[in-house]
């Protein structure tokens, strides 16, 4: 069993960050570029998935292109001792696509819980937010809804350290 060296791992990260080869045996294609056996690449990718370095392989949809044009960032000013509990409730909610705790930037920005709702039109997204407020009892939590008007850039993050 071949274990990739640190340098080979960096080379593999660089090779896949723009996408997997569209060949019948993509991991063999990557392996031949690195000069290692196919199973070494397969083992490394499995290890990265298991360790959580890679959340998943597969595709990332350009959501605007497939009709999700109402993209709302919904932000909440939650008491610090309640934010984890509310975050956990939000993760269960089907309308929410992302949910994070972030720092407030007072005095201009009092919000510390951020969630995204991607929908097909704004009216529906407003209804989903209203339902969320009712279901989770958020009537007394200050919030703001920031729809995106224009998208200027959507590329994946790049993390390979090469060159």
């Amino acid at each position: 069993m071949t274990i990739l060296t640190q340098q080979q791992q960096e080379s593999l990260k660089a090779a896949i960050q723009d996408g997997l080869p569209l060949t019948a045996r993509p991991y063999a294609t990557l392996a031949s570029g690195l000069g290692v056996p196919e199973d070494a690449v397969i083992l490394q990718l499995e290890q990265w998935l298991q360790d959580g370095y890679i959340k998943r392989l597969g595709l990332v949809v350009r959501h605007h292109a497939v009709g999700y044009r109402a993209n709302a960032m919904v932000v909440w000013n939650v008491p610090d001792d309640q934010v984890d509990a509310l975050g956990e409730e939000m993760r269960q909610h089907p309308a929410i696509t992302l949910c994070y705790r972030r720092p407030r930037r007072l005095p201009d920005w009092p919000y510390n819980l951020f969630c995204m709702i991607h929908g097909k039109d704004r009216t529906l997204v407003h209804q989903q937010i209203e339902a969320l407020i009712q279901q989770l009892g958020l009537q007394n939590i200050q919030h703001a809804v920031l729809f995106s008007n224009r998208q200027f850039k959507q590329t994946g993050g790049r993390y390979a350290r090469v060159g």
Partner: peptide, 16 residues
């Protein structure tokens, strides 16, 4: 242009 990528979704912080 339907996809931003076909490949890995990294966990940025764990990747350093």
């Amino acid at each position: 242009n339907y996809l931003t990528r076909f490949g890995p979704m990294y966990h940025a912080e764990r990747m350093g």
